[in-house]
Amino acid sequence: MLDGITLGQYVPTESPIHNLDPRTKIISSVLLIVVLFLVEGFQGYLLIGLGILGIIAAARLPLGFVLKGLRPLRLILLITLLLHLFMTEGREIARLGPLVVTYEGFNKGVLMTLRLGLLVLATSLLTLTTSPIRLTDGLEDLLNPFKRVGLPAHELAMMMTIALRFIPTLFEETEKIMKAQKARGADFESGKLSQRAKNLVPLLVPLFVSAFRRADELAIAMEARCYRGGEGRTKLHTLQMTRADYLAILLLTAGVIVIAVVF
């Protein structure tokens, strides 16, 4: 059903980027996002773009594959471009019927589209090179200090893990129930929108019932395996910052500061 979507799906290969600590990569992504909002101007974006290309190369990801990840967003990118192109006031450079393209609009449109595209690329790099488990571990660890102010870091991470574990199972189940109801003459494909929404009831009710049953059974199974929250829990895979991690953060921070100051 969602086979076509590659945006941010983890690609398990060996690379220096893959080997970085997930915390390094989360922090780096945040830094990249911040700098993308600070910078205005082509040179700055060009540099950031080159940087991202460098990271893609270092991560041994096929460029085509990464760019293909942008495809589901092409409509949003196009709308961003067009809106700015036609809606910005300024010096006219072209005219399409009632629509006026201005120099400022052209500039702004391209910049905004670039910003959005780079933003998506930067964040998808995180998930492309980090397995969901490591990502969850990293997030949990980074959020841990906020426990004191009541943020349930461990619980959030556990929820994420369970969601990741059960998404494929629930997809399979959806497909199965859909087929079973089709065999009873249900129609999920035609009709008006309101009718179609109504037609989903025979699919959604069993799906929810089953999800609750699974949750129930899983909770018992977890309890039977001595689960009692995050307190006193250890991990199979511990996070370890290496020299490469510090170096990566240092380099990136330096680059970000330079770009932010210069542009």
Binding site: I133, E217, L218, A221
Partner: peptide
């Protein structure tokens, strides 16, 4: 337990 799907917690 009985249901193999509903007792595995983690993603690997």
């Amino acid at each position: 337990f009985q249901n193999p799907d509903n007792q595995l917690v983690a993603t690997t």
